[in-house]
């Protein structure tokens, strides 16, 4: 009985708790389905014997009319070599290739996300660089926040809010 070239597996090393923690909320159902499927694989493996089960040849020798026959069986059974199944469709390679591709995608994605995060952090530090309200004159305030400043080239009507200006499409009387 040879164990074959392939490596034997008997225990799952997937960290399902961590997997669930990092899984996006909208994909939890998919995760649950994957886990159920995975569990059926593991359960199937665990219902079957790990090694070739022993046969009580001594008992058979007593019962068989021809004890030499039991000996022959024993010898043949001991010499039995069961080949480990071959991954014909080469699924493992496919899985590996898929992972490589995903990793590439994730790398660019993470770079983009980190750039956005960096921009946010810069913006936070810039907010902290603003002078205090007590230290600002009205003029300074208008330069820092030009969108709130009075612009003589664009006069506004009372009550001077964007939603109720004649040029705003959301205005009730917009034409």
């Amino acid at each position: 009985m040879s164990s074959g070239a392939a490596k034997r597996v008997s225990k799952s090393i997937v960290d399902w708790a961590r997997f669930t923690a990092v899984c996006p909320k909208h994909q939890l159902d998919m995760l649950r389905a994957v886990k159920a499927k995975h569990d059926t694989f593991i359960n199937k493996v665990h219902t079957l014997p790990e090694n070739l089960p022993k046969i009580d040849f001594a008992g058979y020798k007593a019962r068989l009319p021809d004890p030499a026959m039991a000996d022959r069986f024993e010898k043949a059974y001991a010499a039995l070599s069961i080949p480990y199944p071959v991954d014909k469709a080469n699924m493992l390679k496919q899985v590996e290739e898929e992972h490589q591709e995903n990793e590439k995608k994730v790398k660019t994605y993470v770079a983009n996300v980190q750039a956005a995060g960096q921009e946010s952090k810069t913006f936070l530090s810039k907010i902290d660089s603003l002078p205090q309200f007590e230290e600002m004159t009205v003029e300074m305030f208008n330069y820092y926040f030009p969108e709130t400043a009075l612009n003589p080239e664009r006069p506004t009507f009372w009550p001077h809010i964007e939603e109720q200006q004649p040029y705003n499409p959301e205005f009730k009387y917009y034409k």
Partner: peptide, 21 residues
């Protein structure tokens, strides 16, 4: 990736154990 790989490996293992059985 880990889960997929293990899925394939477990199926192979199950087939092997089935043969033993």
């Amino acid at each position: 990736h880990q889960a997929k790989k293990e899925g394939v490996e477990f199926q192979l293992e199950a087939a092997y154990r089935q043969r033993l059985q």
